[in-house]
């Protein structure tokens, strides 16, 4: 995060406190002597819709809007919104995301209902797209600190070390913006979030962080495909089931291809779920990577 200016995108779902968090962060920037502009979209909030807030600070800010690929950090109060906001991050930006999941109305799926499902993206999968993911079970952390609703302050706490605002600016901003009855809970939640520790992001270019020596084989599985048996894009079970996005289609659709063969972890899902006997997974040794989820406060 540059010390003199920065852009933070806050996203979430109506009622979670996106706008309040954004106001607190903007006030903290102002108290730290920065020019700051903030703009939010909250039209759908009362119906459980999405809320997003753009926040930019610096010596002089002309526009509050953050373009695609320009945000230094995205703070997502809801998991799906965080995944959705990844394109806003600049390369090397930080994704701070809560593990809270609020299914959007279109994902209230039953046998006769909606047609989309809540995206099943695991935190460790995000690491491939965003090196620095800081995922936390913010609601549980906030509940432990006194009030589950202060989860937005937990995420601000995680954000705070990345921004050049002194602690007293944050505290003053929280005191000035949070309703008095919830103030102590939010202060405690902010402190708890600030105390969370995350695994260090890998240095640029190193790809997936490793615990073991680089002599280990980089890929633990490989996928064999019987082209003549694959029924192609109309099936696509394997493509959607693969948690590592290994499989995909070329523009001519059939058959399926291993488009990211090195990412295969030999979990076998594609082979077990392929109804056409077209996929065979070969397994090698299994290295383990560090988890991105902060387990405890320190």
């Amino acid at each position: 995060m540059p010390a003199e200016s920065g852009s933070v995108l806050l996203v979430g779902v109506g009622g979670q406190g996106v706008v309040l968090s954004s106001a607190v962060a903007a006030d903290a920037a102002r108290r730290s002597g920065f020019d700051v502009k903030q703009s939010e979209v909250h039209g759908m909030s009362q119906r459980g819709g999405v809320v997003s807030s753009h926040l930019r600070y610096g010596p002089l800010v002309h526009s509050p809007l953050i373009g695609a690929g320009e945000a230094d950090a995205v703070v997502a109060l809801e998991w799906n919104e965080g995944v959705r906001a990844i394109p806003a991050l600049r390369p090397g930006g930080t994704l701070i995301v809560s593990l809270d999941r609020i299914p959007p109305p279109s994902a209230f799926v039953d046998r006769h209902g909606g047609a989309v499902a809540y995206p099943a993206v695991a935190p460790d999968t995000l690491r491939r797209t965003v090196p620095d993911v800081r995922a936390a079970d913010a609601t549980s952390v906030a509940a432990a600190a006194g009030n589950a609703r202060a989860m937005n302050s937990v995420l601000l706490g995680i954000l705070s070390p990345l921004l050049p605002f002194p602690a007293e600016a944050w505290d003053g901003a929280i005191a000035a913006n949070v309703p008095r009855a919830a103030l102590e809970a939010n202060r405690a939640a902010f402190a708890a979030g600030r105390a969370l520790r995350f695994p260090a992001a890998p240095a640029p270019g190193t790809g997936r962080p490793r615990r073991r020596a680089p002599a280990e084989p980089p890929s633990v599985g490989s996928v064999d495909i019987v082209d003549a048996w694959c029924k192609g894009e109309d099936c696509a079970i394997c493509v959607r089931a693969c948690p590592e996005y290994v499989l995909g289609f070329e523009p001519d659709a059939r058959p399926v291809r291993a488009v990211r063969p090195d990412a295969c972890t030999a979990c076998m899902l594609c082979e077990i779920l392929c109804p056409d006997f077209a996929i065979t997974v070969r397994r090698a040794a299994v290295p383990a990577g560090p988890s991105l989820v902060a387990a405890e406060t320190t």
Binding site: K231, C235, P275, D276, A278
Partner: peptide, 13 residues
Amino acid sequence: MPHILCPGCGHGI
């Protein structure tokens, strides 16, 4: 093979 079942049919599973 390949079997006659439609693309995505669960019976193969």
